[in-house]
Design a protein around this nucleic acid. Structure first.
Length: 423
RNA sequence: GGAGAAUUGGCAGAGUGGUCGAAUGCACUAGUCUUGAAAACUAGCGUGCCGCAAGGUACCGAGAGUUCGAAUCUCUCAUUCUCCGCCA
């Protein structure tokens, strides 16, 4: 969440930045400051009363030692009222802090100034394009027909076992997924990311840490008996490794990657967007996560963008990079680049990666800090990106590379898959 | 899942009702000494909030309670360890 101190000190800038999301920045900023003023005032009063109570207690202790019981008892009577006052005071402080926190939870990150204003995906800015669209025959099949033809992904079977959106990968389909796991992890490791295998279920504190809670409460699967959530992305457990952690400045950049299944309820989705592999409740993804010195985070973001470009080039898929506009930007992000591959038979762009810088929005919640050269505590910056999400990559590979002979895998995948054609 | 024990600063580890934000050791930082290093010695060394500052306040797993006063007593919860049960 936004830091109150930053909101106070850079009001004009924060207002301007929130307005990129079409929010009433002025109103929000003044609400924050008002609540924070109340919080401060409440604490000052409470602290003064506590100081008095503490000092009386010390006096009583002294009097008891000297055996002056009567004098001690006189003082005790004085504390009755103070106790009451302190009890009320601490309740008032808690409620002031709580109200402020609740407000901050509802305010999304303030976008980077380079984020275009806009309220829908039409206003996203194409910043890079790569590759040629493959020329398709008129009878080119969408991937859900190809998966049927070669019997590599079974949607019906998934419905039987779990429900829509939980496909069963079979034969070369399953092996292709396994190949992608190794391909993506090997590349990430080569780029300096440490591989981790985190839990797939997370507690509430972790959900708040990276900002899925309370904002995306309804989008995560929740296990009622144990009050745990299934991860919607490895971002949550991997970033939460660093909750309540104080780093040394020399630790930066901290680079982790991980392969996990991801679970999303996708409430409210419908239509051709959810056909086949386009949108699933469970899918596989390799995620890259970085922790950064605040001065370096946007350099690292660019570096991550270059890394994703390299992956997609190796996969020989036509893609483009979008800078998301204020209206399309995720709740916690300050700047996001989306990667879309062109899926030729559907004639559609499919989002396969989203790379974001969160500045201090997550680290403020996580209490992820480092000591600067003057020994002062500072919040780190967090970044992450999908590298990559599997199902739409598979969809695009199937559609773009289909031929009479079967589906030809890109060269770099062949050694991982152990076969050249899905046939 | 059942029974028992535990949870203190980066680590180890004292502290069972008052001047304890917390002994001591190790680690760490700076300095002295040294040609340099080690050793030794000296000093420093947790975090949040309020305050221009002095300082105040809170934190000894979390939350509630008893008390004038709680690291210390009571209750609830969490976690860890040991034994039993179950199990990939």
């Amino acid at each position: 969440m936004l830091q109150v101190s930053v909101v106070r000190e850079h009001q004009e800038e924060i207002i301007k930045r929130l307005e990129i999301r079409n929010l009433n920045g002025k109103e929000l900023v003044s609400q924050v400051i008002e609540l924070d003023d109340r919080r401060k005032k409440t604490q000052q009063e409470l602290d003064a009363n506590l100081a008095e109570a503490n000092s009386i207690s010390k006096q009583i202790g002294g009097l008891y030692k000297e055996g002056k019981i009567d004098e001690a008892n006189v003082l005790k009577d004085k504390t009755t009222e103070l106790k009451e006052l302190n009890h009320k005071g601490s309740e008032a402080l808690h409620s002031a802090e709580n109200e402020l926190r609740q407000l901050l939870y509802t305010i999304p990150n303030s976008p980077h100034l380079s984020v275009p204003k806009g309220n829908s995906e039409e206003h996203n800015e194409v910043v890079y394009e790569h590759g040629e669209f493959p020329s398709m025959d008129d009878d080119a099949k969408p991937h859900w027909e190809i998966t049927d033809k070669y019997d590599i992904v079974d949607f019906e079977l998934g419905v039987k076992i779990a429900g829509a959106g939980f496909p069963v990968y079979k034969g070369k389909g399953a092996r292709l997924q396994r190949a992608l796991v190794n391909f993506f992890l090997d590349n990430a490791t080569a780029a300096g990311y440490r591989e981790v295998q985190p839990p797939l279920l997370i507690n509430e504190a972790s959900g708040y840490g990276t900002g899925q809670l309370p904002d995306k409460e309804g989008q995560m699967y929740h296990t009622a008996d144990d009050d745990l959530y299934l991860i919607p992305t490895a971002e949550v457990p991997i970033t939460n490794i660093y909750r309540d952690v104080i780093l040394k400045e020399s630790d930066f950049p901290v680079k982790n990657c991980g392969y996990t299944q991801c679970f999303r309820r996708e409430a409210g989705s419908y239509g051709s967007d959810v056909r086949g592999l386009n949108r699933l409740h469970q899918f596989d993804k390799v995620e890259i996560v970085q922790l950064s010195h605040p001065d370096k985070s946007y350099e690292l973001l660019d570096e991550m963008v270059e890394y994703i470009k390299m992956l997609l080039t190796k996969l020989e898929l036509p893609y483009r990079v979008l800078r998301l506009c204020g209206g399309d930007l995720g709740f916690t992000a300050a700047l996001t680049y989306d990667f879309e591959v062109y899926s030729a038979a559907q004639k559609k762009w499919l989002e396969v990666s989203s790379v974001s810088c969160f500045e201090t929005y997550q680290s403020n919640r996580l209490k992820l800090r480092y000591k600067d050269e003057n020994g002062k505590m500072q919040l780190a910056h967090t970044l992450n990106g999908s590298a990559l999400a599997f199902p739409r990559i598979i969809a695009a590979l199937l559609e773009n590379n289909q031929s009479k002979k079967g589906v030809k895998l890109p060269k770099d995948l062949v050694e991982y898959a152990g076969f050249e054609y899905i046939d």
